[in-house]
Design a protein around this nucleic acid. Structure first.
Lengths: 239, 239
DNA sequence: CGAAGCATTGAAGTGCGTCAACAATCGTGG
DNA sequence: CCACGATTGTTGACGCACTTCAATGCTTCG
C-alpha cells in the first residue's frame, strides 16, 4: 500500500532503495477509518502526517450557511496533510469519503527524514507545491469554466492521477463520490451537477453507473475540459 | 525593501541576525519591471526565484477563449515564485500589475541557503504552504460565496497582508488594480464587478477612488465576507 | 487635443439555483 | 426473504444572480 505512495514520488524523481527504506520505516502506525468522518479537524494542532494508503478523502471548507466546498480530492498514495508538517494546524478539514486505510508519520520522524535525506525534503516540498498547482487549476475552473467544462476537467484530473497508482483500468475507474460530493467539488448545486452529468452522458462523452466512471470519448472530454496535464507535473524534468 | 520580506517571515517565526544576513546576501541582482508585463511565463524552466520588493504582481492562468483568471495577488515582501525552486517551471504566468522592483535569488543559492539553514528551509516551505492556503480560500470564495461576499473577502485579505508590510494606513490602502483585474480575481465580468463594488459603496462599507481603498465599516465588511484570517497563519504558533 | 483605456449605465438574455416532488437504491432489522 | 426508512438520483417549474451587448462619459497620457 505504501508502494502507491512510492509510485507517486517515483513518477517525479528517482527514489533510492535507502530512501525507500527510510520512508517505509517512518510510518509509525496504520489505521482504518470509517467513511464520512472528519479525520482531521481544521485548527487542531497536529503532530503527525497522514498517508492515504487506500480509499478516498477530501479537503473541505465550510461556510456559516452550511455550504461545503471541497478544495482537493485525495486517493491512494497521497500525503493528505503533508502541509501540516510546516503549518502545524490546518485551515481546512480532512474528511473520509469511503472507508480508508491511513498511515501516520510523526512530525519528528518527518523532521528526521528530511534532515537525513535533503533530497526527500525537496521531494516532499515539491509534492505540497503540486497540491498548490491543483488548487490553482481549480481556481481557474471555478472562476472561468462552465459547469460542464469543470466537471469534465475533474474527470480528466482524476483519471490522470488514478492511472499513476494503477487505479484506472484503461478508460474506466471507480469514482465513489455521490453527486452531492461531486457538486461540492464543482461549486454547483446537486441538482445542477446531476443535469450537467446527464449532459455529458447525452453527448456520449462519459458514463457513470455503479460508481464506475467510463470515458467513452477521451478526445471530446479533454476538449470540453480544455485539459492539459502539465499542472500535475507528471514527469522527471522537474526536481 | 528586503526588510518587507523579513517582516513577512518574522510575523511567522524568529529569524536570527545571521539568517537575515544570509538571506540578504542571496539576492544576486535587483531589477525594475514595467507594468502590465508577463515577468515569468508558464512552462519555461527557471533558475532563480523572484522576490517582490515593491509593486503589485499577479499569478494568472488563461483559457483558450482569452478569459484570464488571477489565482493570487502579490505585494511587497512576497516571494512570487518560490515554488519554482522545487517545480522548476510554473503552471501559470506571473504578471506585473504596476511598475515593480524585484530581486533575484538563483536556485543554487536557494539550495545553499536551505541546506546551511534547515530552519529557513522549513520557513520557506511554510511560506509556499501559506500560498496554497490562500488558494484554498479562493476556491471556497469562487465555489460558494456570492459576488459581493467574494469582493469583500478579497478586500479583507489584502488589508491583512498589506498591514503586515506597513502598506496600510489604518483602514485605507492603495489598491492599484483596474476593475478588469479585480474582476479577473473574482471570476466575474467587469460589468458585474463594477455593480458589485457600487453595492459595497452604497452600503457604506468601503470607498474606492483614485486607487485608494478605504474600509468605512470593518465589522460589516468582515461580516459580508465571513472573513477569518487564520488561513493566513499570521502568528508564531506555527513553525 | 485626440485616442485609448477605464468606469458606468441600461436592457435583455441565460446558466445555474431553488423548491418540491418522486423514483431508485441501499442498508438494516424483523 | 421482505419491509422499512434513509440516502441518493432524477425531473419539472420557476426565479434570480450574473452575463452579454451596446452605448456613453470620464481619465489619462502621448
Amino acid at each position: 500500500m505504501i508502494s502507491d505512495h512510492l509510485k507517486v514520488l517515483r513518477k517525479r524523481t528517482e527514489i533510492s532503495a535507502e530512501e525507500e527504506r527510510a520512508i517505509r520505516n517512518s510510518v509509525a502506525e496504520t489505521r482504518r477509518l470509517p467513511p464520512d468522518e472528519i479525520a482531521v479537524h481544521s485548527g487542531v494542532e497536529l503532530n503527525s502526517c497522514m498517508l492515504l494508503l487506500d480509499g478516498w478523502m477530501a479537503r473541505c471548507k465550510d461556510l456559516a450557511s452550511g455550504e461545503r466546498q471541497i478544495t482537493e480530492l485525495h486517493i491512494a498514495g497521497d500525503f493528505v496533510d503533508l502541509h501540516s508538517f510546516t503549518l502545524k494546524c490546518l485551515d481546512h478539514d480532512l474528511a473520509t469519503l469511503t472507508e480508508c486505510t491511513v498511515g501516520f508519520i510523526p512530525h519528528e520522524r518527518m523532521k528526521d527524514l528530511t534532515e537525513r535525506y535533503p533530497h526527500l525534503a525537496r521531494v516532499y516540498w515539491f509534492m505540497t507545491n503540486v497540491d498548490a498547482a491543483i488548487h490553482r487549476e481549480w481556481v481557474l475552473s471555478l472562476g472561468q469554466r462552465s459547469a460542464i467544462s469543470r466537471m469534465a476537467h475533474l474527470f480528466c484530473e482524476l483519471h490522470a492521477r488514478l492511472e499513476l497508482v494503477g487505479r484506472a483500468k484503461g478508460n474506466t475507474y471507480l469514482l465513489p463520490l455521490t453527486q452531492r460530493e461531486l457538486s461540492e467539488c464543482l461549486g454547483l448545486t446537486v441538482v445542477h451537477a446531476n443535469r450537467t452529468l446527464q449532459e455529458l452522458r447525452r453527448r456520449g462523452v462519459v458514463t457513470l453507473e455503479n460508481r464506475q466512471l467510463t470515458i467513452l470519448d477521451e478526445k471530446a472530454l479533454e476538449q470540453v475540459a480544455e485539459f492539459d496535464d502539465s499542472y500535475l507535473y507528471l514527469d522527471r524534468r522537474h526536481l
